Computed example of a mutant assay.
Amino acid sequence: MASRYDHPGEQAASDPIRLLAIRDTPLSVDEVFAAVGDDASGGTALFVGTVRNHDSGADVDTLGYSCHPTAEAEMRRVAEKVTAQFPVRALAAVHRVGDLEVGDLAVVVAVSCPHRGEAFEACRKLIDDLKHEVPIWKHQKFSDGTEEWVGAC
């Protein structure tokens, strides 16, 4: 008798990376969510990173993101690592560069998997690894006139 895990929908898709981009235009949660739609997925996890109005006890007015020319290739490497570790049916990630205001979307990632637990874990791995491994830098400007560069974010 076949196990329920033998069904093709329980397996990772053969080409699950649907959208990877670094953009200097506003990001769309709807676009990322639509990119990970998959009839075999029982769970979709989505993370939206926004520009907050404070950091390390200081008020943030604005910030800017910049990236190394290899950033998109590094995003792909990270995405491939996540898809190798989890049964990902679909994955999408977009990151913003340029000048942003408080409340703007900085990053949107989503992962769909056969089950919710896998989707949560894969999405968490994706955003954490993007933050630590992709060469994107944040330049924050504070209300007191000071500023700070933050390494790979």
Score class of each variant (00 low, 15 high):
Ala2Thr: 15
Ser3Leu: 11
Ser3Ala: 02
Tyr5Phe: 10
Asp6Gly: 02
Asp6Lys: 07
His7Met: 11
Pro8Gly: 11
Gly9Pro: 02
Glu10Cys: 07
Gln11Asp: 10
Ile17Asn: 00
Arg18Gly: 02
Leu19Asn: 00
Ala21His: 01
Arg23Cys: 11
Thr25Ile: 07
Ser28Met: 04
Asp30Ala: 14
Asp30Leu: 07
Asp30Ile: 04
Glu31Asp: 14
Ala34Val: 04
Ala34Met: 01
Ala34Gln: 06
Asp39Ser: 11
Asp39Glu: 10
Asp39Gln: 04
Asp39Cys: 03
Gly42Ala: 02
Gly43Ser: 02
Phe47Cys: 01
Gly49Glu: 12
Arg52Gly: 09
Asn53Leu: 05
Asn53Gln: 10
Ser56Glu: 13
Ser56Thr: 05
Ala58Cys: 01
Asp61Thr: 15
Leu63Thr: 08
Tyr65Asp: 06
Tyr65Val: 14
Cys67Ala: 15
His68Gly: 14
Pro69Asp: 10
Pro69His: 06
Glu72Val: 15
Arg77Val: 14
Val78Gly: 06
Val78Lys: 00
Ala79Ile: 04
Lys81His: 05
Lys81Asn: 08
Val82Trp: 00
Val82Glu: 03
Ala84Thr: 04
Gln85Phe: 00
Pro87Leu: 03
Pro87Thr: 03
Arg89Thr: 08
Ala90His: 05
Ala90Thr: 08
His95Val: 15
Arg96Cys: 13
Gly98Thr: 06
Gly98Leu: 04
Leu100Ala: 12
Leu100Ile: 09
Val102Pro: 01
Val102Ala: 02
Val108Ala: 07
Ser112Glu: 13
His115Glu: 04
Arg116Lys: 05
Arg116Leu: 11
Glu121Met: 12
Ala122Tyr: 05
Ala122Asn: 09
Arg124Asp: 09
Ile127Met: 08
Glu133Thr: 12
Val134Gly: 10
Pro135Met: 05
Pro135Arg: 03
Ser143Asn: 13
Gly145Thr: 14
Glu147Lys: 10
Glu147Asp: 15
Glu148Thr: 14
Gly151Phe: 08
Gly151His: 09
Gly151Lys: 08
Ala152Gln: 12
